[in-house]
């Protein structure tokens, strides 16, 4: 094709691209339909879309400034003015939950995005690079997963000090090995497959092979892995924030709301429910969606499970 189509190179290419995008959109839409047919998947999809919607429009949805202190109205029960009551400083819990949703999503998406990029790069280095580097990286991945996650987190926080950036660093470092291992395995199995050997014999560059063959092959697995990672990451953020090692007060996060609730557990259960409820709904929603997505994208796995 490259020999005789130089003069018309652009239009068929663009057509191809359009067709490709259309095909992709169609397959994404099919996946969504498939998920929503499964009751659990539909529930997951509903919860996740709601959460993402809230995260996007938190500013418009919030009835109050989430950091507005009102010491005269502390630990109030839910009323029409304050749907989820107020916290120990008289701040509106509902507004804090909404902004907490945004924080949770921001941290989760940024961390998973970075972990994915890092994992792809390290996985490719491991799969394509020299043997010693591969062994070293595998040792690092193994070591990372031989530390209990929270112990690792606390060790890093001791060194770097608590805060949002540390939180993201922690989450990214515990997530990277998963992605890197997957990319490495794919690279190794692809490296020796016949069509890659054929491509190589045609002098295709490594970059071309990576972008044309490897990445399209792993998109499905990456999406599944990321969606399975979401609840874990959300939990880590909330958990560390709950311990005061993540999002720093006075900023709202589901974890800091839970911490406030925990401190005043004998006075009012409302804050705990306000912080814990959305956290449970979010982890459930993402888990249900992830499971359903895996079944939809990887029919082989499903069959093995339901034989």
């Amino acid at each position: 094709m490259s020999l005789n189509s130089t003069s018309h190179a652009r239009s068929p290419l663009r057509n191809n691209l359009l067709v490709n995008i259309k095909a992709h959109l169609a397959s994404i839409w099919n996946t969504v339909l498939q998920i929503s047919r499964d009751p659990i998947g539909a529930l997951g999809l509903f919860l996740v879309t709601t959460i993402i919607f809230i995260a996007f429009f938190a500013d418009f949805l919030m009835p109050y400034d989430p950091n507005q202190i009102n010491v005269l109205n502390r630990l109030a029960d839910p009323t029409w003015e304050h749907w989820l009551g107020t916290d120990n400083l008289g701040r509106d819990s509902f507004s804090r939950v909404l902004i907490g949703t945004r924080v949770a999503m921001q941290v989760a998406i940024v961390s998973i995005g970075l972990a994915m990029v890092g994992g792809i790069v390290l996985g490719l280095i491991s799969g394509y690079g020299p043997k010693w580097l591969d062994s070293l990286l595998v040792l690092i991945f193994d070591s990372m997963s031989s530390l209990p996650m929270i112990m690792f987190a606390m060790a890093v926080i001791t060194v770097l000090g608590p805060g949002t950036y540390t939180l993201i660093i922690v989450i990214v470092s515990v997530s990277i090995p998963g992605y890197a291992r997957m990319i490495r395995a794919q690279t190794l199995s692809l490296k020796n497959s016949e069509f890659i050997l054929a491509e190589r014999s045609l002098n295709a560059s490594s970059g071309r092979i990576i972008f044309n063959h490897l990445l399209p092959n792993v998109v499905g697995s990456l999406v599944i892995l990321a969606s399975m990672d979401m609840p874990v990451v959300i939990m880590l953020e909330a958990g560390l924030s709950f311990l005061g090692l993540g999002i720093k007060p006075p900023d709202a996060s589901w974890g800091t709301i839970l911490n406030d609730g925990y401190s005043f557990i004998r006075d009012s259960p409302v804050l705990i429910i306000a912080g814990g409820g959305p956290l449970i709904l979010a982890t459930l929603g993402f888990t249900f969606l992830g499971e359903s997505l895996r079944d939809a994208l990887d029919p082989k796995l499903k069959k093995r499970g339901s034989k």
Binding site: G239, L258, G261, I265, P269, I272, G276, L279, F286, F288
Partner: peptide
């Protein structure tokens, strides 16, 4: 099973404490 796995253990801890 999926729900048990999904719900963070520290939230369970706070709720059963409550």
């Amino acid at each position: 099973s999926v729900s048990f796995i999904a719900i963070p253990s520290f939230v369970v801890a706070i709720f059963v404490l409550l």
